[in-house]
């Protein structure tokens, strides 16, 4: 366990989902640290380390919900992907919407992946495990020499 844990930023307004994601990642084999923020504004503040996020780590992976108050996922996505400092960070849209329009809109905004939240617990855990397996295991993330095992 010498390497630093993978920093995951979860942008999600539903505390129930935050908790579920946390529970799912807790069972993960990959060392990770889950940082959760409630909406898009906070996500941007976290990334720019402004306000109370002065000490925030730079995330290696972002899990982004779409429908949130104040600043929604699409706006966050557009802002990140047009900002040279953050556009490299993979963004996985994690939402309950399976509307075609949302899917294509997100990819147009350069989302790296689009995953629908499944309804059952087992399925949800499976999906999070899959994300973890691929994005934190198989996939190589930018700015890291190798992914933690």
């Amino acid at each position: 366990m010498s390497s630093t844990p993978i920093q995951v930023l979860l942008v999600e307004d539903n505390p129930g989902d935050v908790r579920l994601t946390r529970e799912a990642l807790r069972e993960s084999k990959v060392r990770n640290q889950l940082n959760a923020v409630n909406d898009g504004e906070e996500a941007i503040a976290f990334l720019r380390r402004s306000g109370r996020y002065g000490e925030a780590p730079r995330p290696d992976l972002i899990l982004l919900d779409l429908n949130m108050p104040r600043k929604n996922g699409r706006e966050v996505l557009a802002e990140l992907k047009s900002d040279g400092d953050f556009q490299q960070i993979p963004v996985i849209v994690l939402t309950s919407s399976d509307s075609e329009r949302d899917v294509s809109e997100c990819y147009e905004l350069n989302a790296n992946s689009y995953v629908r939240k499944p309804v059952g617990l087992d399925q949800f855990f499976e999906v999070i495990a899959e994300i973890e397996r691929y994005w934190m295991g198989v996939n190589r993330l930018p700015g890291r020499t190798s992914n933690a095992k």
Binding site: G16, S96, L121, D122, F124
Partner: peptide, 20 residues
């Protein structure tokens, strides 16, 4: 039906978590 999915997901997931 779309908006019902969200709370339903919570109910289902936490029931299952409880069970687990």
């Amino acid at each position: 039906s779309h908006d019902l999915q969200e709370p339903l997901r919570m109910v289902t997931s936490y029931l299952e978590l409880l069970e687990r």
